[in-house]
Computed example of a mutant assay.
Amino acid sequence: MDGLEYRSEFAGDRSSRAALNDFLIKIHGLDLTLWDERVGWDPDFVPFAFFDGDTVVAATCVYSMDMIVRGEWCRAAQISSVGTLPEWRMRGLNAELTRQAMEWVAVKGHRGTYLFSDDDAVGFYAKQGFVERSEWKHRVAVSAASEPGYRLLEYSRDESLIRRLVDERTPVSRELGARVPRLELFHLLYENAGELRYVEELDLLACVKEEDGVLSVHDLIGPELPAWAEIEPLLIGAQTGSVLFAVVLDRLGVVGAEMVEDHSSRLHVVEGEQLIGGRVIVPLTAHA
């Protein structure tokens, strides 16, 4: 296509991987060097790209992952890291790469595919057969704690503890959860998941952000998942008035939660697939 070279599944080729990283920096401001060095490139993060010489001019990636959906483990695919250099746009490159990626997903036997879209790309994904789905958060009022029972972790200082918790984790939900260790470590390393509050008494890591008295819970990572009644008095802070859960609550036993429809991530699924349905939300640490 336009004299370009098509390459796929080249994660084992360091020079091609470096070219993809340069591309991601230009398009998304995302530098994967630290992840590659500290965690290791995940072979389940599969690139599809057009090269002009040694330069990636367009790319689409698939993150293949283990996901639990309505109590059953399956293989799911997320489309991510999509883009084209400005001078190569309007030539159908990403449409072709998305087609190639979706063929690969089908051949590998994935149960379904999803993605998160920028506002500008919604029309493009509609043409590729994707439809937008709402996600649902849950809000519950809480009483502020005088003495929280957690301590803050830092990846550089507490890496061995964080890695153990990720390796031993149980899914936060059986309705919709995932187990993607290297992707989870990416979010924790780059601090995308907010504060890392470790409740030692429960051996539980909570990925949270707190603003204006609202504690947003993005994931709960540990060998066991206690009931929320056990977690709440140890996790919340002195200024917390409510908790907004960005995880499905089927395992937490939360009582009296209000459901909140959310479109901020612009979740899309393949039209007709049943991978993600109902009032659920994909945990932040499963966003590629």
Rank of each mutant, 00 (worst) to 15 (best):
R75M: 03
Y190F: 14
F124K: 00
V214Y: 10
E258V: 07
F48E: 03
P47G: 01
Y114M: 04
S117Q: 02
D36Y: 12
A106G: 14
T60Y: 11
M259N: 08
S8E: 09
Y114Q: 02
R89Y: 01
V282M: 02
L225M: 15
W35G: 01
S15V: 03
P148F: 12
E168C: 10
H268N: 08
L153N: 11
D167H: 10
R70Q: 01
H110N: 14
M65E: 06
E147W: 15
Q78D: 05
D158N: 15
L202Y: 10
D54F: 07
S265Y: 13
R17H: 10
V243N: 02
Q274Y: 15
E87R: 11
G194I: 06
A49Q: 05
E175H: 10
V199P: 04
A206F: 14
E195G: 15
T60V: 15
S264Y: 08
Q100W: 06
E87W: 09
G272W: 05
W136G: 07
S81K: 09
Y198V: 03
G109E: 00
D13Q: 06
L275W: 14
V248H: 09
L205C: 08
G109V: 01
A246C: 13
F48M: 10
A76G: 11
A227G: 14
M259K: 15
R99M: 08
G277R: 11
D66E: 12
E232I: 11
E154I: 04
E200V: 05
V39C: 02
W104R: 04
R70L: 00
I79T: 01
L205Y: 07
G177T: 04
G40S: 02
E211N: 11
E273C: 14
L93T: 07
S242F: 04
R133S: 01
G272C: 10
E135Y: 12
F130Q: 06
E175F: 15
L188Q: 06
M259V: 12
A257N: 04
E201C: 12
S156F: 14
V56S: 13
D212Y: 12
G237I: 08
T240K: 11
C207L: 14
E72C: 07
L249K: 13
R139T: 06
R163I: 01
I25S: 02
V39D: 01
L153E: 06
